[in-house]
Design a protein around this nucleic acid. Sequence first.
DNA 1: GTCTATAGGCTGATAGAC
DNA 2: GTCTATCAGCCTATAGAC
Lengths: 206, 206
Amino acid sequence: MGIIERKARQKADLRARILEASRAIVLADGFAGLTMRKIAQAIDYSPGTLYLHFAGRDEIARELCIGGLRDLVAALTPTAAILEPRARLEAVAQAYLRFGLERAETYRLVFMEDPTIVKVIYDRPEAGSDDDPGTQAYRLLAAGFFELQAAGRLKPAADPLVLTDAFWSSLHGVVSLKLTCPGFPATPVEILLPTLVKSLLDGMLV
Amino acid sequence: MGIIERKARQKADLRARILEASRAIVLADGFAGLTMRKIAQAIDYSPGTLYLHFAGRDEIARELCIGGLRDLVAALTPTAAILEPRARLEAVAQAYLRFGLERAETYRLVFMEDPTIVKVIYDRPEAGSDDDPGTQAYRLLAAGFFELQAAGRLKPAADPLVLTDAFWSSLHGVVSLKLTCPGFPATPVEILLPTLVKSLLDGMLV
DNA sequence: GTCTATAGGCTGATAGAC
DNA sequence: GTCTATCAGCCTATAGAC
């Protein structure tokens, strides 16, 4: 079986190299600059070869999208060490902003591009399961609000899931506005985000 | 002078027709679907003619961008009739969301596309003046927070301009997330936005 | 599996006739 | 001013040789 295994490994390797090269191109030229030709050139293969590993450009985009979301989860996860829920949510916000600004093109691809790309997150078989990065990221935030509720710190009748959505939407607003209109909210993000998070949580908690 | 005037008017008319056709194409096919050929075909002229009225595709995009912002201002302006500042800000939020969802492609073009397109808003000579739609939209929101401050209703040491930026960012977050990931914040916007706005303002006011 | 070659389409922008 | 024709380039995807 050694030969078959080796061939399978080589195939997986090339697939990984294709994705890695694609990631670099998206980083450098944006998603619009990602073309099959460029990818092939970057890994020294012919364009046709790519189609043996991916159905086409869209499939590569979807893989990158999921990978980016996985990276976001990885960037947010360390905050789980903070026990106090409000402090943890504030740390999540910081980490989220940081990720979005540092990995701008990745963030754009996942959250600001064509809806059909991000659609894969919900349509995949794992969607909703523990293995799904989208679910993991969401739970990371939702957990904080559930804990606050359990401690009786949420305003009565507040729905933790609705607050989670509101919180995430606000974070997304700061990041995405900064990426598209750098310099529009004149307030620097180091002040804007903490102010927003503080106001929001102050308004949500008793 | 009649002949010269007529020619000038004809020229301005064609320019307007080009923009109108472009707007329709962006509406139907998105910004990526806007091409010089399609525009020319829509108004029954040859592609070359477009270049007599615009330097190129980018200039058309910039004009559309400013026009879209102007429309946004028009959509928000009626709320100025509401005297009580908090109620007015809530109404602005509603109108903003409504505009973003109803004019999705326009909103995308102005606030979610290439930074170089929206850049024109700040670089134009009118930028910052009363005639500038960006400034007008911003003032519409900022006025509410200044009035709240004047009435002693803001938390001490709060900066109205920072709150304005935070408020706008949140609105943008709800709209843009909905446009890119329809169905991600599972909470329907009719609940999400009021919850967000209420929490935010509760946290900002004394 | 990988290559070369190419089909078949799109794009923005321009040159020169009228 | 407007047209036709075209340049020069890009793209995805595929067919057939090796």
